[in-house]
């Protein structure tokens, strides 16, 4: 994205201002910022829902895998950009997990034997063997989101966008979902953008943090420094505080902590020689 501005049809104030963003292959990015800062809008530009579905005025240069989402029908963008939404309830339509996963492929008109093969792959990969004929509506929140990700990933997109995918989940289910995305990033070399407010949950997985505020990107880069600089907007994990205070006292910690366990390891190594 270069110099992207966007204004919703019902409004005069732009919600995105002069956005420059380059996402490389295999990157896992946390997109954070206060509600209403434009994160969800930015995410919807990537798969063309904005402006194709919502209208409005969109300016600037946008290329996703060589395609301009404005000039590509949304269903074609679905092959390049997978999108997982906050509420799993609203993205699961069938009474059978297999059929749910197959739906995107059916819409693309793939021959049944090929759909079968890909659905089987997805079921194996996501550990859904025992749930394959269950109704998604009856699954737990974490399982629902797992099915939602599987049914998007089965179309083999190159970029996966997740808009607050864990907001309704308990922390352990949330971490599992974020871990699934990490595996896809590592195995298939896809890129992923996750929108999430609880920074500490995502921290173990992401390589880069982008912070937005009032329609602009105000921070972009390596997680530790970006989070420290923008902690007034997005908060910061408690362990960053411990790390920063120890460093300030000259304590020789050489890498910032992704998890409390990692920080404990580093401390032990230094203290116990």
């Amino acid at each position: 994205m270069e110099g992207v501005n966007y204004t919703y049809p019902s409004s005069e104030e732009p919600v995105l201002r002069n956005i420059d963003l380059r996402i490389g292959r295999g990157e896992y990015i946390l997109l954070a910022g206060p509600s209403g800062c434009g994160k969800s809008t930015l995410a919807r530009i990537l798969n063309g829902l904005i402006p194709n579905f919502y209208g409005g005025k969109l300016e600037g240069k946008i290329l996703v895998d060589g395609k301009d989402p404005r000039k590509t029908p949304t269903y074609e963008m679905a092959l390049t950009v997978g999108f997982v939404f906050q509420n799993p309830e609203n993205q699961l339509f069938f009474s059978d997990v297999e059929r749910e996963i197959a739906f995107g492929l059916e819409n693309l008109g793939l021959p049944p034997h090929e759909i079968r093969r890909k659905v089987e792959d997805a079921i194996r990969k996501y550990g859904l063997e025992n749930l394959r004929h269950r109704s998604p509506a009856e699954l737990s929140g974490g399982q629902k989101q797992k099915v939602a990700i599987a049914s998007v990933m089965v179309m083999e997109p190159k970029l996966l966008v997740l808009d607050e995918p864990t907001a309704n989940l308990d922390p352990i289910s949330a971490v599992k979902v974020l871990g699934l995305v990490k595996r896809e990033v590592l195995e298939r070399r896809i890129s992923a953008i996750v929108i999430e407010h609880r920074v500490e949950l995502v921290l173990p997985y992401v390589d880069r943090v982008v912070v937005m505020d009032r329609g602009r990107i105000v921070g972009d880069g390596e997680p530790y420094s970006v989070i420290q600089e923008n902690s007034g907007l997005i908060g910061r994990p408690a362990i960053f505080d411990v790390y920063a205070r120890l460093r300030a006292k000259g304590f020789p910690l050489h890498r910032w902590p992704r998890t409390p366990e990692q920080l404990a390891e580093d401390l032990k190594r230094i203290l116990q020689g």
């Binding site: 269903y75 074609e76 679905a78 993205q91 995107g104 049914s151 998007v152």
Partner: peptide, 9 residues
């Protein structure tokens, strides 16, 4: 969500 699943392709 339907759009994101290539509905109507």
């Amino acid at each position: 969500a339907l759009e994101a699943r290539a509905f109507g392709a």
